[in-house]
Each structure stands twice: as C-alpha cells, then as structure tokens.
C-alpha cells in the first residue's frame, strides 16, 4: 500500500511538470490537493494500515503532501508573475505631458513686481495716487510753470480745465509729501497718459515707476548709491551706467541715467533709462517741507521700455493687444 502512496506522489509531481498555465494548475489542485483530491484522501486511508505501519504511512503522507504543495506554490508563483508581465501595458514615457491650464501675469506686471521687490528690499514702501489728477499735482506743485512745453493742452489728456489724466507718476510724490512728514522713502508705480501718436515705440498709455527719498542730510551721493544698488540688483552686478546732466522742473540738480547696453551681437551703446535728481526747493515749498532742513532725491523711469529691452519686444502695441500667444511667452 505504501507503494501506492509513493506512486501517487510521483504521479502528482509528474503531472505538475506538465502544467503550463494557471487553468491547468487549478485542475491539478482539484485533482490532488482539493478536498477530494488524491493526496488529501491519502490522510483518510492511513487508518486502513496495520497498526505497525501507521506511523510510516503518516510520515510518508505528510512528506508527499509537503513536497507537492511546495512545488505547486512555486509553480503558481511563477505562473502568476509571467501572466502579470504579459498583461502589462507599454508606457511610452516619451509622449508629451498633458499641460495644465494656467495663466500668466502680464509682462508689465511681472516687471513691476520685480522692481517693487527690489525697492522693497531697499526699504521703500509702495505708494499710489489717482490717475485723474488736477493741475496742481501734475504741474504746479512739480514746478512745471505755464511756460513749460509739457503744459500744452495738446500734449495732455485734459478732461476739463483743471483736470487731466496724469502725464507722469511724479504726481504721487506730491501727494505723499503733502500728507507725510519726512523721512519719506517710497516707490510709486502706475499708469500715465500722453497723447502720442501710436507707433512701435509710442503708446498713449504706459507705466512709470518713481522712487522718492526725503530726509535730513540726503545728498547726491545717497542718490547715486541707491540707484547704483538698484541697477545692479535689477540688471546684474556688472552693469555699467552713468549720470548725465539733464533738466527736469522738479529736480535740481537733475540727471539722466544711462545704461551701457550690450545687445545680442555684443554691440555696446548707452541707452537712456530714466531721469533723476535732487528734489527742487520749489517742490518742497509747494508741499510745505522746509527745504533748508530737508533734502531729497527722486528717480523715475518707464516700465515698458525696460521690459521691451529686457525681453526683446520691438512693438509696444503687442503689450496692449493681449494676444494669449504673446502673453504666454513670459
């Protein structure tokens, strides 16, 4: 009878070797290891052995069961694995990603924020003012007399005799000085309007940014140092720049700030970046600040020109057309 048991064991292992897929393996399991399987039933047949053979039969049965089960499990594992491998899809990692729909800040806002961030680090608070202004803030208090060409009605957007769209952000200087006692250290961005004929470099609305410092003992050296630090922070620490005497009614002495610009071909040229100067005593008089006690400086420039140069934009009109194919590039 023991020989019969051994044969079952051999048959089982032989059958198992023929199994090549999971379905056949299941059939094998039912035939040998299932509830009515041949190996399972061996256990109930041990009782039929003579008492002296029973231990040996028990041991043999256990051994056969253990061996067959181990072989079965091993085969099952490898069959499962190969099946998984077969069903795995090919992932093409070279396919393009699905882009999320996101928007972008306007390039002028990006530039303005960058500028404000630098001035913020330099201790300048942000200030704003109205875009529709009176002549006092746009001209008179800024020492722009009636004889100055900038006063010409055809060079400004007048709304009525005394009100106009501001032609410069310097108006904010006046508003701040009227209501703030020195020390003052502000930076004021904003839209300004001038009735220029529109072309690639002119628009009747554009943006300016203006910095103002008023305190005791402020000198032209302070102005030059602050502008130097600003320019190096914004354009890079190896940027060369210079002061050139100029004329603005609201500053005296006045200077133009020129940058040494290096274009893509390596050509160097001086470009006008903006104007600056020591606050004119007439301006201090207009806002009621003692010009003997306090001195100050102001620095202003156009943001469009800066952004256009930085990004190589050759037509200012693109900035206000707001074509997404343009806006998404920044």
């Amino acid at each position: 009878m023991l020989e019969q048991f051994e044969k079952i064991g051999k048959d089982a292992l032989a059958d198992l070797r023929k199994v090549t897929d999971l379905a056949a393996l299941e059939d094998f399991r039912i035939k040998y290891l299932g509830r009515k399987g041949r190996i399972t039933q061996m256990l109930s047949r041990i009782g039929q052995f003579p008492p002296e053979q029973k231990p040996a039969a028990g041991q043999l049965t256990n051994k056969i069961k253990k061996d067959v089960t181990a072989a079965f499990e091993q085969l099952k594992k490898s069959l499962l694995q190969s099946q998984q491998e077969k069903s795995k899809e090919f992932l093409d990692v070279t396919l393009p990603g699905i882009p999320p729909h996101i928007g972008k800040p306007h390039v002028i806002t990006q530039t303005t924020n960058e500028l404000l961030e630098i001035f913020g680090r330099m201790g300048f608070a942000v200030a704003y003012g109205p875009e529709v202004e009176d002549e006092w803030h746009n001209f008179v208090a800024l020492n722009i007399g009636p004889e100055h060409p900038a006063r010409d009605p055809s060079d400004n957007f007048y709304i009525d005799d005394n009100t106009l769209l501001r032609s410069q952000t310097s108006t904010i200087q006046i508003r701040i000085m009227e209501r703030t006692k020195p020390p003052i250290r502000i930076v004021a961005p904003g839209r300004v309007y001038r009735p220029d004929t529109v072309d690639a470099t002119h628009m009747y609305m554009f943006h300016q940014l203006e910095a103002l410092v008023v305190d005791e003992g402020i000198s032209m050296v302070d102005m030059k140092t602050a502008i130097d630090q600003f320019i190096h922070a914004f354009f890079g620490s190896d940027t060369k720049w210079r002061f050139r005497p100029s004329f603005f009614p609201f500053t005296e002495p006045s200077a133009e700030v020129d940058l040494l610009w290096v274009d893509k071909r390596g050509q160097e040229s001086w470009i006008e970046m903006g104007g600056c100067g020591m606050v004119d005593p007439n301006v201090f008089d207009a806002v009621g600040i003692d010009s003997e006690k306090y001195t100050g400086w102001a620095f202003g420039f156009g943001i469009e020109r800066l952004a256009m140069r930085k990004y190589g934009i050759t037509d200012i009109r693109l900035l206000f057309e707001n074509d997404l194919r343009f806006l998404e590039q920044f």
Partner: peptide, 26 residues
C-alpha cells in the same frame, strides 16, 4: 503694502485657475 500684496496674490490665484492677466488702455 496690502494693496500690492493683494493684487499679487489675486494674480497668482487666477493664473493658477488658467486666467491670463491683461492690461488695457483706460
């Protein structure tokens, strides 16, 4: 500056929602 900060955070939020900022003449 609360104004500047709010404008910037509104911009950031809306950009994230797929909105592009535009600048138009007045």
């Amino acid at each position: 500056d609360t104004r500047q900060k709010l404008a910037e955070s509104i911009g950031t939020y809306l950009n994230g929602c797929g909105f592009y900022e535009t600048i138009n003449v007045g």
